[in-house]
Design a protein around this nucleic acid. Structure first.
Length: 875
RNA sequence: GCGGGCGUGGUGAAACUGGUAGACGCGCUGGACUCAAAAUCCAGUUCCGAAAGGAGUGUCGGUUCGAUUCCGACCGCCCGCACCA
């Protein structure tokens, strides 16, 4: 009987409709079963989904379907990170309103995601650009404001001259805007900030509780927060400067090296530097030069340390009569520590470079262990390792740590100009989160500026502050600011004419709480419903790209803390489990004139074992380039729509899971897709060939005494079941796939080699094998699994079926085969009873020909028997 | 510069806490079926060697009965941060 090929196009549409019709994936908040919240990072509606989405959402869907089958009430929602610049750029370039552009993209991408057969609860869909969503974000903003977590301040900002907007520090990469790539300029503007630094310490220490996060991400966040403990030290001026300060305060993490101090350096933006510059034109000039210097990594690396001697001097705190010159230096940052340092050239490379350039004294004060104090000297490399203090008076002989303590102790109790000379200080690299954006397509900041009352929050009953529909995009700058009427309102406090805040929020705000909104997106009155949000959060398993290791994940952690402080949630952390998946990469192809060519237009041939590429259209030879992340610029993209149309969603899903470990990059290849599709057809064919044979033969036959073949099959089936469970729990999808291949190979071989019809117990075992196999495949290839399930005449939909339990008795063997090594090299193997004692195992091993030959009549020095594992004979 | 990670066949990769290196996939080779092709099925496929045997997880050393796994040095690649005092 010929079996028709599996028609993915027809079957996938059919089952998607069937799941939808039965609302299989709609999740109820009042479901009493244990909850499991699996979430993939929601997409930006850029136009079409790409292969990265396919990989991300396939992984999440495997987890969702598996956990559902395991009896959990699974929340698996989807939404749209829908505000942002591309919509506004489209408005400028194509004269289409950002809302229209965005919602059309959403419609396209929703259809694409649905064609993948994802088990999503679409009833909970949210789009961050909808007033139904952002009204609640405005409420959160006001609550944060009232709790002191939002403030406005004039600050030097990173200004993107192409996008005409302010960027957060995190959005400046190598001195360029993260989206536009334009060199960022410095400007002073009144900006709204979230006080993320209020949680610096908590965000840092709580990383230790996130034991289901990758170490790498936790380390990145730890470094980003950048805690350092040190001392703020006040140096007394020898002579008061014209600005009339008595002291300069510096920050140091190395107070132990104070006896090696040879100068002080101030940031060009330090108040004293500014004040001095007002009277010293040369210093003013120097400051201008510093400001013009770029901030890109390339510039900084090559930039020389430069300083300007202010002529001011300060007293050394411990060495009577010693004075230090005060420089303004280009390498001192104003926004870290106090914007001033003391330089100890012997033990800091930058200070050393500076000292050598300006002929300043270099006195080593830390002696490496074992070095000779008489001869130890620092050349052009500062000594920054451990050692013992010397040349340091009362610190001599102390360790670095002890010296730090001693200096702090003495200075804390010593008064200078009416205050302690030093105070212990913890510094963080983390800065507050600047959220003001001068753009239209974002969540309006719900504040009103009144000449009388100052800055007043919009009353909650007036929310949302909606974006005007009739904005225009024909000139640069913020469309909200030059809209003729939108910003003019009455002050909520005094009723007089006032203006709205025209800044909108950074889109990272939108994505900082969407996972909470999913728990009850129907609540019109409040951002969250406490009973829902507290029972669903934290997200059990969050899956997304490593590129969000800092920004999105740190902001979300801050947001949950702020939402807790304002009574919107009870939890401490948003994501209990985090998984960062690798990228989808592809070969690149270039034609003779250096233009990139798309994989769809390329023909790959194997000529004499060498892969060659030609253009499909005219056969022109192409160069095969390196494997890189799929990107439009290199044209090495594969369109998910085409793959799904040609091969089916299940083939795409299976390939995404099978080839590489999920946290590593996966190389998309045509051959790999063909292989995946071959497997789809193979399963279908096996089911088709066997359906009639095993119909009606299941459990009853198993009760009888099994034939050896049937018994062996059952063992294989249950072992695979146990192993795949374990693999999916660890998100080791590639291993699960390999085990499923093995099981299918076993079944296929059995069908070829055995007359199944003659063995009733084997029919039963085979029936069970297919039931289990389809269940194992279901999370990964749900349509195929359903179609096969129906073909076998099983009842109901697989998507609603409970996961089978493996029989623990079947996954252990009565007899085991142990490798036998001689001197650590395998020489043979012995098969013994599982329960065999050490003596018996040893005897069996020594009886092996290979072992006897190796021993050559002598008795072994030692025989190591590792139970259930291995025997090693030491000759 | 600082911090972290990774180097396994032709190739994507397996090998849980030290215990049979290369499971599974791709590719390739041979065979069956076919007038032929596609599809499918069977067999083989780390390297050297006809075989017996030997070598082998970036390189060199160490610990161990036993090392892809642990330790040290080096080489190469990747990622994050970066004048953070």
């Amino acid at each position: 009987m010929a079996i028709e090929r599996y028609n993915a196009r027809v079957a996938e549409r059919k089952w998607q409709a069937a799941w939808n019709g039965a609302s299989v994936f709609a999740t109820r908040n009042d479901d009493p079963r244990p909850k499991y919240y699996v979430l993939e990072m929601f997409p930006y509606p850029s136009g079409r989904i790409h292969m990265g989405h396919v990989r991300n959402y396939t992984m999440g869907d495997v987890v969702a379907r598996y956990k559902r089958a395991r009896g959990f009430s699974v929340l698996h929602p989807m939404g749209w990170d829908a505000f942002g610049l591309p919509a506004e750029n489209a408005a400028i370039q194509n004269k289409v309103h950002p809302a229209k552009w965005t919602y059309e993209n959403i419609a396209t991408m929703r259809a694409q995601l649905k064609s993948m057969g994802l088990s999503l609860d679409w009833d909970r869909e949210v789009a961050t650009c909808s007033p139904d969503y952002y009204r609640h974000q405005q409420k959160l903003f006001i609550d944060f404001h009232n709790a002191g977590l939002v403030y406005r301040r004039k600050s030097k900002v990173n200004w993107d001259p192409v996008d005409h907007t302010v960027l957060a520090n995190e959005q400046v990469i190598d001195g360029r805007g993260w989206r536009s790539g334009a060199v960022v300029e410095q400007r002073e503007l009144e900006q709204w900030n979230f006080r993320i630094t209020a949680y610096s310490e908590d965000l840092l220490t709580a990383l230790d509780t996130l034991d289901r996060w990758p170490d790498k991400v936790r380390l990145m966040q730890r470094n980003w927060i950048g805690k350092s403990e040190g001392l703020k030290v006040r140096f007394e001026f020898e002579s008061r400067p014209p600005s009339n300060e008595a002291t300069i305060e510096i920050f140091t993490t190395r107070p132990d090296t104070l006896f090696g101090a040879s100068f002080l350096a101030l940031s060009p933006d330090h108040p004293i530097a500014v004040a001095e510059a007002a009277k010293d034109p040369a210093l003013a000039q120097f400051r201008d030069r510093c400001r013009q210097m770029g901030t890109s990594a390339a510039v900084l690396e090559t930039a020389e340390k430069e300083g300007y001697d202010t002529g001011l001097t300060v007293k050394h705190p411990f060495i009577a009569g010693k004075t230090l010159r005060v420089f303004v230096a280009n390498f001192i940052l104003m926004d870290y520590g106090t914007g001033a340092i003391f330089g100890c050239p012997a033990h800091d490379q930058r200070d050393l470079d500076f000292a050598r350039k300006y002929g300043l004294e270099v006195t080593p004060v830390v002696l490496p262990t074992g070095a000779d104090p008489a001869s130890f000297d620092v050349g052009d490399v500062a000594y920054t390792d451990d050692g013992t203090l010397y040349h340091s008076d009362f610190l001599d002989g102390l360790t670095i740590d002890a010296a730090k303590q001693e200096v702090a102790r003495r200075m804390e109790s010593h008064q200078v100009d009416g205050a302690p000379q030093a105070a212990r200080q913890v510094n963080y690299r983390l800065r507050d989160w600047l959220i003001s954006r001068q753009r239209y397509w974002g969540c309006p900041i719900p504040m009103i500026h009144c000449a009388e009352c100052g800055v007043v929050p919009v009353p909650v009953e007036d929310l949302p502050v909606k974006l005007p529909d009739d904005a225009t995009f024909d000139r640069p700058g913020n469309p909200l600011a030059y809209h003729p009427t939108w910003k003019h309102v009455a002050c909520p406090s005094c009723g007089k004419a006032a203006t709205r805040e025209t800044d909108t929020m950074d889109t990272f705000v939108d994505s900082s709480w969407y996972f909470a909104r999913f728990t009850d997106p129907w609540n019109e009155g409040l951002p969250t419903t406490r009973s829902a949000v507290d029972s669903w959060l934290p997200v059990t398993q969050y899956i997304g790209g490593i590129e969000h290791a800092i920004l999105h994940l740190l902001y979300s952690r801050f947001f949950i803390r702020a939402m807790k402080a304002t009574g919107h949630v009870a939890i401490d952390e948003p994501f209990a489990g985090l998984f960062t998946q690798g990228m989808v990469v592809h070969e690149t192809y270039k034609d003779a004139s250096g233009h990139w060519q798309a994989p769809a237009d390329v023909l790959i041939e194997d000529i004499g074992g060498e892969r060659r590429a030609r253009l499909k259209a005219d056969g022109a030879p192409l160069t095969i380039g390196s494997i890189e992340k799929m990107s439009k610029s290199k044209k090495n993209v594969v369109d998910p729509d085409e793959i799904i149309a040609n091969w089916g969603a299940d083939t795409a899903r299976w390939f995404m899971l099978s080839d590489s470990p999920p946290d590593r990059d996966v190389i998309w290849t045509e051959a790999g897709v063909e292989g995946a599709h071959r497997f789809v057809q193979r399963v279908w064919r096996l089911v088709g060939e066997t359906a009639e044979l095993i119909s009606g033969a299941t459990a009853p036959a198993l009760a009888a005494k099994l034939s050896p073949t049937a018994g062996a099959l059952r063992k294989a089936v249950h072992k695979t079941l146990a192993a795949v469970e374990d693999d999916i729990e660890r998100l080791a999808f590639n291993r699960a796939v390999a085990r499923i291949y093995e099981l299918v190979n076993t079944v296929a071989r059995l069908l070829v080699e055995t007359n199944v019809a003659a063995d009733a117990t084997l029919k039963g075992a085979l029936g069970e094998a297919f039931d289990v196999l389809l269940q194992l495949i279901q999370p990964m290839m749900p349509h195929l699994a359903e179609e096969c399930w129906a073909t076998l005449g099983r009842h109901g939909m697989l998507a609603q079926t409970h996961w089978p339990a493996y029989d623990p008795a079947l996954i252990v063997d009565d007899e085991i085969t142990l490798p036998v090594q001689v001197n650590g090299r395998k020489r043979g193997e012995v098969t013994v009873a599982r329960a065999a004692g050490e003596a018996e195992v040893k005897a069996a091993a020594l009886a092996l020909d290979a072992v006897r030959m190796a021993l050559d009549g002598k008795s072994p020095k030692k025989v190591i028997v590792v139970p259930q594992r291995i025997i090693n004979v030491v000759a």
